[in-house]
Amino acid sequence: MAKIAIDPVTRIEGHLRVEAQVDDGQVTDAWSSATMWRGIETILQGRDPRDAWYFTQRI
């Protein structure tokens, strides 16, 4: 039984961590986590709707 973690996953836009449970050479379970959060949804609240595209474009 071994657990492997790949962090950071590169050649992607954003931050990602992947963990996998390996039993007898087979992946039996896996987890992925986005390891960065900015709270754009929270930041957008109460703003002029015409500006929304400019904020969400940065996701």
Binding site: A5, I6, P8, T10, R11, I12
Partner: peptide, 13 residues
């Protein structure tokens, strides 16, 4: 450079 480098995970770090 995470977005363009070949290495990943421990190797990258």
């Amino acid at each position: 450079h995470e977005t363009v480098m070949a290495a990943a995970g421990h190797q990258a770090e």
